[in-house]
Structure formats: structure tokens, C-alpha cells
Amino acid sequence: MAASLTGNPMRISPLPPLPNLVAFEAAMRHGSFTRAAAELHLTQSAISRQVAQLEDFLGRKLFIREPRALRLTVSGQRYAEVVQRLLVGCAEATEDVMKVRSHTALTVACSSGVAVLWLTPRLASFREAHPEIQLRLTVNDSLASLSPAEFDIGMYYLREGPPPGLAARRLYGEEVFPVCAPGYLNGRTLAPAALANETLLMLDDGQRQWMSWQTWLANQGLPDATLRNVLTSNQYPILLQLAMEGHGIVLGWRHMIDACLREGLLVRASEASASLGGGYYAVWPRDRMEPAAARAFRSWLVRQATPAPA
């Protein structure tokens, strides 16, 4: 009975592993495990093993193995006709779905902090270099909650490796230090111990990927520091805006807040800094064919992160 697209879902069964079917179809077309292996960029033994696994699954021999060629058995011939038709149909349907998106369309994912502080001020140079690319920016502070199907390339802060299914390239290392409005401390800088007595602007506990004030102070040898006055938000750009307006001191990530320092909107509140070894990374789906637009954007990210020669 065929599975229906409506009503009660049915498990499609029995169904052999797809790599087994692909190996079988290639070996059938070429009449050779060796030539099938060359086409699929596998070893001859890998193709032979895949076909043997399929034969075990079916309980039928599909090929008669002769010294210089493969011949389909009667069962193999009947099975090959159906398998090839289904694989070709699947490939055509896949191509149709992929064509829905223009090859010049590009979806870039990043956190709100990266979007506001780093990416949007620089996007003009990318768009000038690649006017043909249709850019879509999706903002999500949690990379782990993003499906690889939702974006082509992203830029995220990572403390450890990327989530499963993603590849990554490091762009910037991490350096974290306190910053505030120029008038908040009237030009003074404070020792780490004195910072705990000030109003500290903090990310919510849910933002565990970022360094917290408690972690930063512990890194300065103050693991038991009591924070006397805090103001929290789940959006880092909001905390920076509060700092610029003189409401307190916020932790700043170098490279993200460089423009704010250059323009005098923020100044360092302490000379101390810390790092947990994290950094900013370009990330992209590992197992998907990479569009040319995504390759161009990744190269642009790397160039933007490369220090200019002195």
C-alpha cells in the first residue's frame, strides 16, 4: 500500500540504506565496481561492500561476478530498472527544489550583537563587490537552535566547536574588557575589585555562551565577588546602548565594539581583560553543496578579519 501525504503517517518499509542503492545503480550502469568507485569517489572495496550489504538485505544475489565484468541476475535486472527510475526521479525532484532559490540568493545568519555591531557597518563593501547577490540577513542569538537548512553561512561567537552538521573557520580571537560611557567614570579606570561596586550591565543567565561578569571577575582572581547592582537584558546591543547612555558598565568584546571605542561612544572602564579561548567564527552547513554566493561571502569575511598591514 502506498504511503499517503494525508491522514495517518505510514513508515516506508522495507527500505535499504540509500548509499547501498546508489552504489548498486552505479555498478549496474558501468558493469564494474572499479568504474563505479571512480564515479562516486570511493574505493572499489567500498562499492563491493555496499552492494554485498544490499544483497544481504534483499536475500538475493544481484550480480554474477565474472573476472572482468559484472552481469545482473534476473532479480538484479528487475530491481535495477526500478531503482534507477526512482533515483533519477529523486535527483530531478531535488534539482527542482534547489532551483526555487536563485543561485545568487544568500542567507546569512548571525546573532543580534554581530549584526548590529560588526556586520551591518561593513555590508556596503560586500554589496559593492557583489551587486548580483540577493542578500537575506536572519538574526538568531542561538546558533544551536538554527537548522542548517535555514542559512547558507553565518558568523557566530563559539567557545567550543560548532554544532553537529556545521563546519567553521575562526575569524577573531576573544578579548573581553569592561567599557562605559566617557562621563560615567569621568576618565578614571578601576581595578577589577572596584567594579563589583558599580552598576553592572549583564546578559541574562540564558546567554551562557558569552562570558558573564562572574566569570570575568573570577578570571581576575575574584571568584567570590558580590555584584551589588545589576541591570540585565537578553539582548547585547541593548546593554551597549544602556552603557553609552551612562547607566553602568558592560563587558565589551574586542572587534565587536571597536567602532564604539574609535568614535568615543565608549571607553575602557578597566585596563584588565580576559579570555576563555572562544572567538568569532564563520560557520556553514557541512554536508550541503556550497553555493558560489556563500563561498564569496566566506572569503569576504576572512578578508575583513585579516589585520591590515602596518
Rank of each mutant, 00 (worst) to 15 (best):
G161N: 12
A46C: 03
Q77S: 12
L106D: 10
R71T: 09
K61Y: 13
G278V: 01
R60P: 00
Q207P: 00
R254W: 02
S145M: 14
F33S: 03
A305G: 04
A168V: 04
R170K: 15
T104I: 05
S112C: 04
S111T: 15
S112N: 12
R78N: 08
A115I: 00
A109M: 07
Q241D: 11
A292V: 11
R78L: 12
Q220P: 10
S32M: 11
S212Y: 11
Q44Y: 10
C110W: 02
W284Y: 09
R78Y: 06
Q50I: 01
P192R: 07
A129K: 14
A168Y: 05
V22H: 04
A193D: 08
L135N: 12
Y79A: 04
G165I: 07
L200T: 04
W213H: 05
R85M: 12
V74Y: 07
L195Q: 08
S275F: 00
W284T: 06
L119G: 02
L239A: 01
V83I: 14
G89D: 09
L137W: 03
M98F: 02
R288A: 14
R136W: 09
W253V: 09
L54F: 12
A194H: 12
D96L: 12
A37C: 10
L276A: 14
L276S: 10
K61W: 10
A115C: 06
T138P: 01
D224H: 15
S299K: 14
A144F: 08
A23H: 03
R60A: 11
V114A: 15
L54V: 09
L242G: 00
R228L: 14
